[in-house]
Nucleic acid binder design. Structure first.
Length: 261
DNA sequence: ATGTCACGCTGGGCGTGA
């Protein structure tokens, strides 16, 4: 299975780039985050016309997650709920069986600042993910992929000194993420790229992408039933393309998975 | 760290969130 996870920062603004990605990489499944679209205007027909079925959990102008599945692959047991999630209205989790693999697209709250009420919400969300991910990983082949808004280690940020005291790197957030992984998942990118930076996000400001000022905050976590045959970040999608279509501030991660045994 | 982007509301900048 070829899987992509990508925070698109508005599906409407990014539709040309998403179509470009489908054409270029022909993934079996794409986990999208920050679709920022209402359910009523989700572009199902556009995806159907290029051979993809979409299932979405949408909340209007903020957040929103979706799965795009190549036509012909069976999709079953779509669940838009994450038991115990702090605010179900925020549309941050969506899971389904795709060709016999449980695939979840997630968008962890940003957290604003340590001490902000949304920071506590972020930690509670990670606890809910921990509990559900452990259930899924114990049950069968599982991929939990998306924007976790946590850099797992210091090497996952361009300059750890700059981020001291900021969100995405605090011990509490890293502990929350580590507990998700400890439930029977592993970081697919790190599995095959132990040394690469692998940044997936760069601020739009200050020429951060050009200057290598990034963070690795988007992950594909996979259960022991799955082997990782390859993983890479396609940074071409972090640049304006030839047609002049703008990038998201996140780049997509491409993962090649194979069922074990 | 801050040199940006996208949204809704509304008809052009502003507030919000990242």
């Amino acid at each position: 299975m070829r899987l992509v996870t990508w925070n698109v920062n508005s599906l409407k603004a990014r539709l040309p780039r998403v179509l470009e990605l489908l054409h270029e990489h022909a993934p079996d499944v794409v986990c999208l985050q920050e679709t920022k679209v209402a359910a009523a205007t989700f572009p199902h027909e556009t995806f159907a016309a290029v051979g993809y079925r979409a299932v979405d959990r949408s909340a209007g102008r903020w957040n929103g997650v979706a799965l795009l599945v190549r036509q012909g692959l069976p999709v079953a047991d779509v669940r838009p709920e994450l038991p115990g999630e702090p605010d179900p209205e925020e549309a941050r989790w969506l899971e389904a069986d795709v060709d016999g693999i449980r695939v979840a697209s997630l968008y962890v709250p940003n957290g604003r600042e340590p001490g902000h009420p949304m920071f506590a919400v972020k930690l509670r969300f990670l606890e809910a993910v921990r509990d559900r991910a452990a259930e899924l990983a114990a049950a069968g082949p599982t991929v939990v992929a998306g924007d976790v808004n946590v850099a797992p280690e210091d090497r996952d940020v361009w300059d750890p000194a700059v981020f001291v005291g900021s969100t995405h790197v605090t011990p509490e957030e890293r502990h929350g993420l580590a507990e998700v992984v400890a439930g029977g998942l592993r970081d697919a990118y790190r599995d095959v790229e132990p040394d690469a930076a692998g940044f997936t996000w760069w601020d739009y400001r200050m020429g951060a992408f050009r200057r290598g000022m990034g963070m690795r905050i988007d992950l594909a976590l996979v259960s022991e039933h799955l082997a990782v045959r390859g993983a890479r970040v396609d940074t071409t999608f972090r640049r304006v393309n030839q047609a002049g279509d703008k990038p998201s501030d996140h780049a997509p991660i491409l993962v090649e998975l194979e069922r074990r045994g």
